[in-house]
């Protein structure tokens, strides 16, 4: 028990003293997952909106499929992206395997379904009386959709936050595509919070893992606090 407490205090010390290794991993994690979230947002919100607006055969099936992919296992995404970007794959010539860029791609693929699906839910979830009110006020189709999106904005924002949380917390794809490599340069290393926790723990560096774990939880906490504040405003 004492060892755990001791490791915990060492972890806190690593954070408080802004230990370069810890900070580097945390920064890289944030950059990769934020990039993936931004790209996924740019695709998922318009995509979700288009699916919501248009009536087509198989719409229900498509939404069902998207919802099924909420639980897409991260290792499946890892495998899928690996097949494409490994040296023998169709995109192998780009030499992306074990680079941060590849990790961004993998995380984007991972969170696209949940962000698209939650955008559709956010738009469908607007109160029917609000819809009637918008139409009753004399809105044309374009105005109707614009006001609908405005009403759904907090729920759409929540979709973005969920996507980011899933990206930063996943470990399967990050380790398969990134490989937890440690090079001399910040931009070529692929060690992120989750992969580093996994490997440092197996090597017995408990205090280091704990420091990274605390940071990971803190990021999740901050993101949720920001979301809550925005929604309550």
């Amino acid at each position: 028990m004492n060892e755990i407490i001791e490791a915990f205090f060492q972890a806190v010390e690593l954070i408080v003293t802004l230990d370069p290794a810890v900070m580097e991993i945390a920064a890289r994690s944030l950059i990769i997952s934020l990039s993936a979230t931004i790209i996924a947002t740019a695709i998922a919100i318009p995509l979700g909106f288009l699916i919501y607006v248009h009536e087509f055969t198989g719409k229900k099936m498509l939404i069902n499929l998207i919802q099924t992919l909420y639980a897409l296992p991260t290792v499946i995404v890892g495998l899928f992206v690996f097949v494409f970007i490994s040296r023998a794959g169709p995109l192998g010539f780009l030499g992306l395997l074990f680079t941060p860029t590849a990790m961004v791609i993998a995380q984007t693929v991972l969170i696209l379904p949940i962000m698209t699906g939650l955008t559709i839910s956010a738009l469908s979830g607007v109160d029917p009386t609000i819809r009637d009110t918008i139409r009753s006020l004399g809105a044309n189709t374009r105005q109707y959709l614009a006001l609908l999106v405005r009403e759904a904005r907090f729920a759409i924002l929540a979709a973005v936050v969920v996507g980011f949380s899933r990206a930063i917390a996943e470990v399967g794809a990050a380790i398969m595509i990134g490989g937890n490599t440690k090079t001399s340069a910040f931009w070529t290393s692929t060690r992120v919070l989750t992969t580093a926790i996994s490997l440092e723990t197996s090597m017995g560096n408990i205090e280091f893992s704990m420091a990274l774990g605390i940071i990971l939880l803190a990021i999740a906490l901050v993101v949720n606090l920001v979301l809550m504040t925005v929604q309550q405003r």
């Binding site: 109160d127 009386t129 609000i130 009637d132 009110t133 009753s136 006001l147 405005r150 009403e151 904005r153 907090f154």
Partner: peptide, 8 residues
């Protein structure tokens, strides 16, 4: 409408 609703 019957249900009091406001835009956010």
């Amino acid at each position: 409408f019957q249900k009091p609703v406001v835009f956010s």
